[in-house]
Design a protein around this nucleic acid. Structure first.
Length: 216
DNA sequence: TGAATGATTTACT
DNA sequence: GTAAATCATTCAA
């Protein structure tokens, strides 16, 4: 599926479709790094290259909101079809944006943790209260939601159609680490289910090096 | 109906 | 480096 040009050059951009998302969450999380997240509300366009993701794989993953098959109004969308948006509110302030993956009744999702702004930095800067060139625009899951204007209104939206979507990006070097902020999950927190672009200044934080050479 | 808590961010030392 | 902010969601009663 073609979309109109959204960032700068004349290249054509292909929207990621159902088949891309209806796979295992680890594959999708890894391959989303380098893709471009777009929010086109018809008046303004925002876009950013995904540089950091995390995979959450219920029901077995203790770190996932869908752990143990927990099916609530909040997690409901994760039990449905891949390619839909799962948003949740945390710490009394922040929204986080995910895309559902896998097959129905496999409650998985990829958390988008950081992007590199590509289009619409001025609006992102206004919403974030930071300069346009600031790394703080979108280098965290809550920050990018604020910059892109994501909140409960986007819950359940189909990312294969509509105003919010991903387009294919160029391949890039992807590293992995443990996920962030899920220490409550015991050994599940240690699994290397966080994926991020090597050498990107836009990732939310540098992973703690593991091993003498800082290898992943 | 009430209590606990969190897939974070920010300010401050 | 630490700590406070702040409220929707969840679960127990």
């Amino acid at each position: 599926m073609e979309t109109r040009c959204i960032y700068g050059n004349a290249a054509r951009h292909r929207r990621l479709g159902r088949d891309f998302f209806a796979r295992g969450v680890l594959d999708v999380a890894k391959e989303l790094v380098g893709a471009v997240l777009v929010h086109d509300d018809g008046r303004r366009v925002l876009a950013g290259r995904v540089v950091e993701t995390e995979a959450y794989r219920g029901p077995e993953d203790r770190a996932a909101h869908s752990y143990g098959g927990r099916r609530t109004p909040r997690t409901e969308v994760m039990f449905g079809r891949a390619g839909h948006a799962y948003l949740f509110f945390v710490y009394g302030k922040h929204w986080n944006f995910n895309v559902v993956t896998g097959q129905p009744d496999e409650p998985q999702a990829v958390l988008i943790r950081a992007v590199e702004p590509v289009v619409g930095q001025a609006l992102m800067a206004t919403r974030r209260g930071r300069p346009e060139e600031s790394l703080e625009l979108t280098n965290g899951p809550g920050k990018l939601c604020q910059a892109f204007g994501f909140d409960r209104r986007s819950y359940g939206l189909d990312l294969c159609r509509g105003a919010i979507f991903f387009v294919e990006g160029a391949p890039t070097r992807v590293l992995r680490s443990a996920r962030i902020g899920v220490d409550y999950a015991g050994s599940w927190a240690q699994r290397p289910w966080r994926f991020f672009e090597a050498d990107s200044p836009w990732v939310s934080r540098c992973p703690r090096p593991r091993g003498r050479l800082g290898r992943q």
